[in-house]
């Protein structure tokens, strides 16, 4: 297991401890705690899970169980930008699969992977509820609707 103080800055860890302090007390506060922890650190590796376990008294295996159960959490650090290609039904019917395949081929990444230059992390998503704009791609939280294989590159070129 990596040394947590080498992976994260002192400030980041202080912030993490503050969240553990406030959220850790709530019954059922584990998921909000993890959501906020990931918000600060970007991901939740084992070292962070252990720290949360030690400070809250929640067994580490339970924390690991939760982190691996929910797709929102990741144990790997993400690249600078996050691409989520929607493959909900409406997007699938409207060609979302072709968009996903294009990104996989052109950028040489599979689901959950990041490009070597640390620019993009690529994920498939279940549905953003923006079905009226299918097919949809979300980059860093911004929704791009009615996209096509032809304009994917143009959208992504804005993200360096």
């Amino acid at each position: 297991m990596e040394d947590i103080t080498k992976t994260f800055s002192k400030e980041e860890l202080e912030e993490l401890d503050k969240i553990i302090e406030t959220e850790g007390k709530n019954p059922g506060g584990l998921i909000p705690l993890l959501e906020k922890a990931q918000g600060i650190l970007g991901y939740i590796p084992i070292s962070v899970q252990k720290r949360i376990a030690e400070k809250t008294g929640i067994p580490a295996n339970r924390i690991y169980g939760v982190v691996t159960f929910y797709s929102f959490f990741t144990m790997e650090s993400r690249a600078r930008h996050r691409i989520q290609v929607c493959l909900g039904t409406a997007c699938y019917v409207k060609g979302g699969k072709e968009i996903a395949e294009k990104i996989e081929n052109d950028y040489g990444i599979k689901v959950g992977e990041s490009t070597e230059d640390g620019r993009f992390t690529y994920e498939r998503a279940r549905c953003f509820g923006a079905c009226g704009l299918a097919p949809v791609m979300v980059v860093d939280g911004k929704v791009y609707g009615k996209i096509s294989v032809e304009n994917v590159d143009e959208i992504l070129s804005q993200y360096k």
Binding site: G88, T89, A90, R126, C127, A130
Partner: peptide
Amino acid sequence: DEGDPGAYMDRS
């Protein structure tokens, strides 16, 4: 938790 892909009535 409107999880059914292709449904967004609740979001609306």
